[in-house]
């Protein structure tokens, strides 16, 4: 009963519009408003199928910049996610070993940045990393040469790790916190060094948390726009930026829709894994 209204709302405003994106990706660019000419007419499927040409997709595949943007999005998302695991794990592990009072406080401290504006947190890094920014002022004060980080892929990785760290640290913490301490003691009693006990007992048992954090970060990072736009350079190609540019700057709606469709298809498998995991949490 209670499901009907949110079901209809999400069906209308979340699921159904994907079909519109796909339909638009099959249209031609036109100099009108809205700037496209429909090719797909639901009342005339036969003619549509006979005349089916994937013009826009052909354009995307033949222009190497789109393929590069797509590959580079996957690369940046994969590296960012790996960095997030490497940086988030020690933090989550440390949190899990604190007393319960300080654990609650630390969870709050890691969650709070999520409530401050994403845009502002990315902008804070612009002020730090730009050539005449806070970082270089600090280096200068120490008598060190300036570094050029702004508008490079390195700046994008810093921004990604910074913005998504809570999404990695909290699921990791949730798994590590539940772990039975006596298992580590048993490993130690059997002669394992602390590192070996961690590597053969703690880490394998925390893999569900790693997977949860990785999916929560990887999926939105592949389509990220704000971070590559503000911190990356003109050579930083990401599909989210491509969609934005095609839509707002080039007014090429069909190309934006085709790029969005390609992004969505790329994310089908990660999204299904994510859904399966959420369903498990529900049970």
């Amino acid at each position: 009963m209670a499901a009907i209204a949110p079901y209809l709302w999400l069906g209308m405003l979340f699921a159904f519009p994907f079909l519109l994106v796909f339909k638009l990706s099959l249209s031609d660019v036109a100099l009108s408003m809205p700037p496209y000419a429909p090719k797909f007419d639901p009342g005339n499927i036969g003619r549509f199928v006979r005349a089916l040409d994937l013009d826009t997709y052909g354009r995307l595949v033949s222009d190497p910049i789109y393929i590069k943007a797509w590959l580079s999005s996957l690369k940046i998302a994969a590296i960012s996610t790996a960095l997030l695991v490497l940086i988030g794990y020690p933090i989550a592990y440390g949190m899990a070993r604190c007393s319960s009072g300080s654990r609650q406080l630390l969870v709050l401290a890691v969650t709070l940045p999520f409530f401050t504006s994403f845009l502002i947190r990315v902008y804070a890094w612009v002020a730090i990393l730009k050539p005449a920014g806070i970082l270089n002022a600090g280096l200068h004060a120490l008598g060190l040469p300036p570094v050029a980080v702004m508008n490079t892929d390195a700046a994008v990785y810093i921004g990604m790790v910074y913005a998504y760290l809570p999404f990695m640290a909290l699921p990791l913490y949730a798994v590590l916190e539940k772990q039975d301490e006596s298992l580590i003691e048993a490993a130690a009693d059997l002669g394992a060094t602390p590192f070996r006990a961690f590597w053969t007992v703690t880490f394998p048992m925390s893999l569900p948390g790693v997977a949860a954090g990785a999916l929560l970060c990887f999926i939105p990072i592949v389509g990220e726009f704000v971070i590559p736009d503000l911190l990356g350079g003109s050579s930083t190609l990401m599909i989210g930026k491509t969609i934005w540019t095609e839509f707002f700057n080039n007014r090429d709606w069909p190309a934006a829709a085709a790029a969005a469709t390609a992004l969505l298809i790329t994310l089908v498998v990660p999204l299904m894994l994510y859904q399966r995991q959420q369903a498990r949490v529900l049970r």
Binding site: V21, P220, F225, I243, W244, A260, L264, L271
Partner: peptide
Amino acid sequence: VMPEVITGL
């Protein structure tokens, strides 16, 4: 988790 550019478009 859906990238915002897709939801927005």
